[in-house]
Amino acid sequence: MITQPNHVPERLGLLATSAVDPFLTEELLKGEQVHGGIDLAKVVEPLPEDDARWWVEPIRSLVDDAVFEFREDRTRADAWLAPRLHATLRLTRREAADKRLWNHLALAVAPDYVVWRHLSEPTAKKPERRVAAERFRGPADRQCFSRLWWAAELFRNGSDYEPVDIACGNQDLIHTVLRSELIDHRPTAQALVRLLKSGQVSGGREINGLSVAINTAGATLLYDILAPDQPRDPARLRHWIAEAGSAPPVERYELPSGPDEDPVPEESVAALTRYFAELFETAPVRGRKSGD
């Protein structure tokens, strides 16, 4: 297994996807050898000096802790890391949509983490262990760090990261739902988590069935009407981001707190949870045996 590059930058930067290729070597994808970091640093566009958010150290120490803590069951690292990464790397969505930031994090700062978390288990079909390149520089819902950050962003309930913990504890949920437009509606995301938490829905097949049902009914239904959300106050997030410089390292054992935004209206979550449960229970496909 590889270690971090010899040279880890002190600050986060922007790494264009077109510049990624020389460093995304076969050796790295196989988890055998990582680049040295010096050459990579030359093609990085720097971020503003005066912004404390771009310090690498807090993130680096987070991933190190994750590797140590979850050495037995690396998939469980997602639920632990997602809220803590989100609370450490305080971004606006505008900033988070810039793939170059995630490229840099994955290739320059913590390629060892990407390999540790996503190196495939050998199977009969594919005996060779390998990391999919998309974990380094892929779509937002596939890239190693951006998927965690976005999962935290979309599933947090205001400042409360507990729903993130639940959602990311279920690989099926973040795998199938993160790419769907449905969870852009906050009450929908919270209702999904609540169904998972209550055990009304469990397992990959059921989660998939539920999300297909919601997605299908959502072709003609506007959940925004059934479960209204409140308008956001952007100042709260700005304030939280501004505090990044003076914030202590995030809690390792307790969940940290997110930006002080209003939670989703409880009536909306409750109403939508009932609605989805009913959608799920009345779905004709449920009676089918698996393997059909």
Partner: peptide, 10 residues
Amino acid sequence: TDGETNVRTS
């Protein structure tokens, strides 16, 4: 809506 930043407000 904005698919790039997962925004949906109504």
